[in-house]
Design a protein around this nucleic acid. Structure first.
Lengths: 223, 223
DNA sequence: TGGTGTGAAACTTTTCACAGCT
DNA sequence: AGCTGTGAAAAGTTTCACACCA
């Protein structure tokens, strides 16, 4: 097995290839070319080939890639041969939605626990799980190897939740709170921020509007 | 005004500077150095300076940047001088959470409408808005210049919702469905996929576990 | 003195283009 | 003939390091 790390950009795309390939497998597609995988994922074929080459040489020239085998290799590379336990902290609107998200189980994860600091919420049942107190986190971490932390609290609480997660030995955190978390070396954090995504869209939306404007002016000047 | 496009990587960070700066302004901080802005955002100071230099030269040597002025410039660049209307299609768990997300209004957006194709849901009230039929989208688009579409439907419905959005003139889409949308040139799509983010985390989590393992073996071999 | 603004260097990622295998 | 795998070129991004200015 090759031990060089896979480029970050490629790691970010492997899950997308995986999902597409799983769908193809369900539809009975036996092999796939870089060209058709590119089409289905929205990337281009050179990128697909380069990405897949980091997994090893699993394609057949003149034919393409064996869908089932590629699925297996990507799963292995991403560590998805096991189901990973996830703890969701902060069961507001978003935490609720996350707990009920069916895609979790389908794609290699299981909710190990739902936690909230609000005593009024503790005991309530969501997605078949009883909400527990944040104070239970040490126990939950102790009994779940490789636990992944998801933070869906309001921003002001997020850093202290992250600190607690780090303290109980969690080294992978998915953060939905709109704040930059400070964590020690060796802990991975990924952030999802809905408003940020929308603001990026408005930048390009505005730019398109400005471009159209310039064109209009140009025509007016000519006419 | 400079008309060269800002690098994509920088555009992706501007919203994060903005949020941090707004918080600083609320705390009465008048000026900020690239070093302290770097600390607060988790980037480094060289990156901060390079990013901000794309907006123009708004810093003062020996002092730093005027917080209020910088906020103004970033808002202008991102097109956040106006509030943008957003239509959310697919009011399941996630759509619900999005509709109730307070950060929207705070950061330049307003829900123009909530739509669902399920007649049983139409009429229901969520976040102070009545859920309407997807068939109302043309009307909504016609009366909201610069409307941004948010897709929170299940994957199988997402492409046809996107097609409809494109048809009614929307050119910015935020997609939560785990599928690559095909859209014509000139339409921007950003995708948020919860399971993808978790799968990226597991890659690194696995890598850390493997590294620890190697170290353990190394010690065992030496001992 | 302290901190910006920026060329230049280093690094990463994407794209090209084609040799070589099936 | 068709499609992978990959060096090499191109493009994009980050980091360095320092001139220059308040």
């Amino acid at each position: 097995m090759d031990d060089r790390p896979i480029p970050e950009a490629t790691v970010g795309r492997l899950p997308i290839y995986l999902r597409t390939l799983v769908e193809m497998a369900e539809n009975g597609v036996p092999t796939v070319s870089s060209e058709s995988l590119a089409e289905a994922t929205g990337f281009n074929s050179a990128k697909v080939r380069k990405d897949l080459s980091h997994l090893g040489s699993y394609g057949t020239r003149g034919v393409g890639y064996d869908v089932a085998y590629l699925i297996h290799q990507i799963r292995r590379e991403l560590g998805l041969t096991q189901h990973w336990p996830v703890v969701i902290v902060g069961i507001g609107n978003l935490g609720h939605a996350l707990a009920n998200y069916r895609g979790f189980a389908e794609r290699g994860f299981r909710a190990a626990a739902l936690l909230d600091s609000d005593p009024a919420k503790v005991g309530e049942e969501v997605a078949g799980l009883r909400i527990r107190s944040v104070e239970d986190l040490p126990d939950i971490a102790a009994s779940n190897e490789g636990l992944i932390g998801v933070i869906s609290t309001p921003a002001p609480a997020a850093q202290q939740v992250a600190d607690l997660m780090v303290r109980v030995g969690i080294h992978s955190i998915l953060n939905f709170a709109p704040i930059a978390l400070a964590v020690p070396e060796g802990v991975s954090v990924r952030k999802v921020d809905l408003a940020v995504e929308l603001q990026i869209l408005t930048y390009y939306e505005q730019r398109k509007a400005a471009l159209l404007d310039v064109k209009r002016r140009g025509r007016a000047a000519l006419g």
